[in-house]
């Protein structure tokens, strides 16, 4: 109802919606509450590490001949992590944050892994997260540019042609409710079987996922000028092209940027999921998969945090471009 046709990309697994994002931004950012919430989340994370890793902590302690309750390994196996942590608070708390393969790594372990795989190895090395992030990001950006470009072209067609509007727009909206990303593995395999591999299959998925947000947002934006403004241009005897370039296009920019932010996040998810099914050797998705194969939890978390940072940087970069462009055009946010 609010975003109708709604400006979001749930089909790509992105829960951000354009209207709410604008609403949140309009309220402004107050640093202290945000920092408090983030600190609370981190504290919760640390706290959760203790019961999550309790089984391993207690087993290690028992092997080192430290008295633990209950005494027998069989009894311990049937207990939950929370119960074990409560029975052996000292042991569980002491070694919850230092295990090599914890069930839940502590934030500082993830940070150390991130630091070790970005700053301490050469960016071209296979172990470097920067290398993997770049592999994913390049596919994301290529797909994003293609998908957004096509989306803008289609949106222009939809706004100017009633038949295109009637025939395509309902499908563009319905397609948002379809879990599009589920077909990512198929696209990869099919393209591979006809000889296309490397960056392109992932880019195709990214393009597909950023396509619909761009269409929906641009259609909304190009239609945002009201009767009065369109009539004014008519009194100037402005041609269709002039109306488009001087009124519709500038008016659509806020909507375009809202959908670009959603589109880039969707593209990134597409590229990451596109790396999962084929056993790709490089990329953040490949890191996730390899980590889950070998039980390298710290590596999974590091890849996950890297993906989150990448998403934040990409969305932030578009936000910066938005601010510059809109202020050049004299539009205030």
């Amino acid at each position: 109802m609010i975003d109708r046709p709604f400006l979001s990309a749930p089909g790509a697994g992105i829960g951000r919606s354009g209207r709410v994002a604008l609403w949140v931004r309009a309220r402004g950012l107050s640093v202290l509450p945000v920092l408090t919430v983030v600190a609370a989340l981190l504290a919760l994370w640390y706290l959760a590490c203790i019961p999550m890793n309790a089984a391993q902590s207690v087993t290690d302690a028992a092997r080192a001949d430290i008295a633990v309750t209950p005494d027998s390994a069989r009894d311990r196996r049937s207990m939950s992590g929370l119960a074990l942590a409560l029975a052996n608070p000292g042991v569980a708390a002491r070694s919850a944050f230092t295990q090599a393969r914890p069930r839940l790594p502590a934030p500082h372990q993830v940070a150390r892994e991130l630091w070790a795989t970005t700053a301490l190895v050469s960016p071209t090395s296979n172990r470097s997260l920067i290398h993997h992030a770049w592999v994913t990001l390049s596919a994301t950006l290529l797909g994003f540019v293609i998908g957004t470009g096509l989306g803008i072209v289609l949106a222009t067609g939809i706004v100017h042609s009633r038949v295109m509007d009637l025939s395509v727009m309902p499908w563009a909206i319905v397609s948002q409710t379809v879990p599009i990303i589920a077909i990512a593995p198929m696209i990869i395999v099919v393209l591979y079987s006809i000889g296309i591999e490397g960056i392109l299959p992932k880019a195709v998925i990214s393009a597909y996922l950023s396509f619909f947000p761009a269409v929906v947002g641009m259609v909304k934006g190009l239609r945002s000028p009201d009767r009065m403004q369109l009539d004014l241009l008519r009194t100037y005897a402005a041609s269709g092209a002039a109306t488009f370039l001087k009124l519709r296009l500038p008016a659509s920019l806020p909507y375009l940027f809202a959908s670009l932010k959603i589109g880039i996040a969707a593209s990134l998810v597409g590229a990451i999921v596109g790396e999962l099914p084929t056993g790709a050797v490089a990329g953040l998705g490949a890191r996730l998969l390899a980590g889950s194969y070998y039980g390298q939890t710290v590596q999974i978390w590091a890849a996950l945090v890297a993906a989150a940072i990448l998403a934040a940087l990409a969305v932030g970069a578009i936000g910066v471009i938005e601010r510059i462009t809109l202020s050049r055009l004299g539009l205030r946010l």
Partner: peptide, 28 residues
């Protein structure tokens, strides 16, 4: 206070690739 902290954080989290937590949660 909680509201003005949770809103930006939640809005940010909603744009993250949360599907990536799948391998971890399957492990758990």
């Amino acid at each position: 206070f909680l509201k003005s902290g949770l809103l930006p954080v939640g809005n940010f989290m909603a744009a993250l690739p949360i599907v990536g937590t799948a391998p971890i949660l399957v492990m758990w």
